[in-house]
Nucleic acid binder design. Structure first.
Length: 582
RNA sequence: GCGCCCAUAGCUCAGCUGGAUAGAGCAACGGCCUUCUAAGCCGUAGGUCAUACGUUCGAAUCGUAUUGGGCGCACCA
């Protein structure tokens, strides 16, 4: 509908141009849904924008434009308002067309082909596999998955990917943490390092290893800790302490260290996968950092940087001149001890991503990583790829509130609320919905009590309830012997304010999907659905649907049937279920 | 100190990239169930859009400064 109006306007401007009244059509011209019903269905600021170049008053220009628009059948009337807006009132015919489109489109209504033929690589969550996902990761997961759904509904081919940081020192710390817990199970008395992973899941993995490998890895505690420097809380250094423990464990265990690591990472990763799957978040690919090292890609990408003279040696380390591309300082890629930094893997990973040939590469990162944007883009530019093809979306942290109080969390001590805890407490639907209800770059307060409540204060239930209510109406209609056939419906019979409002709202859906997707803003869809649900509830209270008047019954059932379809389609994109009854 | 993000009703937040009288939910107050689910509806009240300048027909939206909050500034991931 909007396109048709747009075309009409453009044509009109062309005509005026031919008459020498106007020159260019500036991009600032907008055609929008109106906020206020009294302003019609759509409004444009075209006369305001063009008045200056036409050297005339906006009101006069608006009239000229209107005169030029000879009546298309979907426009009921136009009027000039305020300083020179042109308001369009659409005819009933146009809303009937939308309703038909919705019902015939069914579950696929709202999709379009804007992105057909374009591929997108969407990477998100990518939490370190050092423990279960917590509520912070949940936001990235819900956001990424919803953005993915939105883009797919525009026809983009989207691949969801999780980058697994399964290499490096953190993995060694993980292994040592498990090893020490395992020793405790063997009856040894150990002092757990301050810098180790302290969560209970580490103990679980340790006993898992005990089941698989028995006491094969048992070493005496005295041997393990002999000569190891003091830990932080003992007045020493926690980093050196754990590093020495790592080397000692590797020495003592040999291949066994790897076995412990393998059991550990597999256990944690499978937990993460299960967690996400249950949350409705599905990845096409789990990309291993270690694989970049094993297949030499990491090494090769550094070599390429060397060949193109983007790196230099300083203080025994290898530095990448990211300042050439606007970063604030150069970054180390190979440390003086020969180890690659995390950034080195990231360079290789992004190079690999780009070489897979996607039209667009999107990363969803926690906002605390914003300092990495410049250097990653620098690496892309250094390989002569276009850094603009990489879009980095930042997601702020979520604070949990329970009983009006902030829930304190700290990863290191293991006292964090896991995503699983959250899902168990508030349910998948509320979790998915609440996470995306706020703009992603906005800090959010996640109110556990609100998400759990099954009352009118909970927006998820509010929308789901609208869906269930419509379903219930149809059940009643069927029991009363009403045979519903939307093709027989005469929507011209709908004259109540509440039903006209809902027709307007339904015609907005496609635009909302497009806008949410293109701007990566799922909250727009969430707000829309709440608004639609609200209008339905008003309609429900204002008008009976099942009446003696068969004609009117058909017309009204058609409206709510279309409403039900749109609610369902929208909720599906958000990953929220549509219960038939509540 | 430098960089990025943010500041809108008592609370949590929208405001469609400069438009018409700044909106919603919750909380507060007052109404509505013999009628399709009251997990609902209707109404009332609530604001110097952090502050100050500037840009123009027009600013919550753009620019500058100030104040106040969050995050980041490793040869850690």
């Amino acid at each position: 509908m909007k396109e048709q109006l747009q075309n009409l306007l453009t044509k009109c401007i062309h005509d005026l141009k031919d008459q020498g009244l106007l020159s260019e059509m500036p991009s600032k011209v907008r055609l929008d849904h109106t906020k206020d019903k009294s302003h019609g269905d759509y409004a444009t600021n075209i006369a305001l924008i063009l008045a200056k170049q036409a050297k005339t008053n906006p009101l006069i220009l608006a009239q000229t434009i209107i005169d030029q628009l000879d009546g298309a059948d979907f426009i009921e009337k136009t009027e000039i308002a305020g300083p020179g807006f042109i308001n369009f009132f659409l005819s009933d015919k146009s809303s009937a067309a939308v309703i038909n489109e919705i019902i015939e489109g069914g579950d696929g209504y709202g999709t379009s082909n804007i992105g057909v033929g374009q591929s997108i690589l969407l990477e998100y969550v990518s939490a370190n596999p050092t423990g279960p996902l917590h509520v912070g990761h949940g936001r990235g997961a819900a956001y990424g998955a919803t953005v993915s759904n939105l883009l797919r509904s525009l026809g983009y081919k989207v691949d969801n990917e999780y980058y697994v940081n399964d290499a490096g020192r953190q993995m060694d710390i993980l292994s040592v943490s498990i090893f020490l817990r395992y020793l405790a199970l063997c009856g040894e008395t150990i002092r757990f390092p301050d810098n180790g992973y302290q969560g209970k899941y580490i103990n679980d993995i340790a006993s898992n290893i005990m089941e698989i490998h028995g006491v094969n890895f048992h070493k005496e505690a005295a041997l393990v800790f002999e000569g190891i420097c003091k830990d932080e809380l003992e007045g020493g250094n926690k980093e050196s302490h754990i590093d020495e423990l790592i080397s000692r464990s590797k020495e003592l265990l040999g291949e066994g260290f790897k076995s412990i690591f393998t059991v550990g990472i597999e256990s944690i990763l499978s937990g993460i996968k299960k967690d996400l799957a249950e949350f409705g978040v599905v990845f096409e690919k789990w990309f291993s950092e270690q694989s970049l090292i094993d297949n030499g890609l990491s090494e090769a990408s550094i070599k390429r940087l060397q060949e193109s003279k983007h790196v230099y040696k300083k203080d025994g380390a290898l530095w990448f001149k990211t300042t050439d591309y606007g970063d604030e300082k150069d970054r180390v890629v190979v440390r003086d001890n020969g180890n690659h930094t995390y950034f080195a893997s990231d360079i290789a990973y992004h190079l690999e991503k780009f070489e897979r040939g996607y039209d667009k590469v999107i990363n969803v990162w926690g906002a605390d990583h914003h300092g990495y944007i410049a250097r990653v883009k620098a690496s892309i530019a250094a390989f002569d790829h276009n850094p603009e093809k990489l879009e980095i979306l930042l997601v702020q942290f979520a604070n949990l509130y329970r009983g009006g109080k902030k829930v304190q969390m700290s990863t290191r001590s293991g006292s964090f609320v896991t995503l699983e805890d959250l899902r168990n407490e508030v349910g998948n639907d509320a979790a998915r919905f609440f996470y995306i209800l706020r703009k992603s770059e906005q800090h959010m307060d996640f109110d556990l009590d609100l998400a759990k409540s099954k009352t009118n204060e909970n927006p998820v239930f509010y929308i789901q309830y609208a869906y269930a209510r419509i379903n219930s109406v149809f059940k009643q209609a069927q029991e009363k012997g009403v045979v519903f056939n939307y093709k027989d419906a005469d929507l011209g019979l709908l004259t109540e304010e509440s039903e006209k409002t809902i027709l307007r709202e339904l015609s907005r859906y496609k635009g909302v999907i497009e806008s949410s997707a293109m701007q990566y803003e799922p909250h727009q869809l969430a707000y829309y659905l709440r608004e639609l649900a609200s209008q339905f509830h008003s309609y429900y209270n204002a008008c009976p649907f099942i009446l003696d008047d068969q004609e009117l019954t058909q017309a009204r059932l058609t409206v709510i049937h279309a409403t039900k379809q749109v609610l369902y389609n929208g909720l599906s994109i958000l990953g929220v279920s549509s219960p038939e009854s509540m």
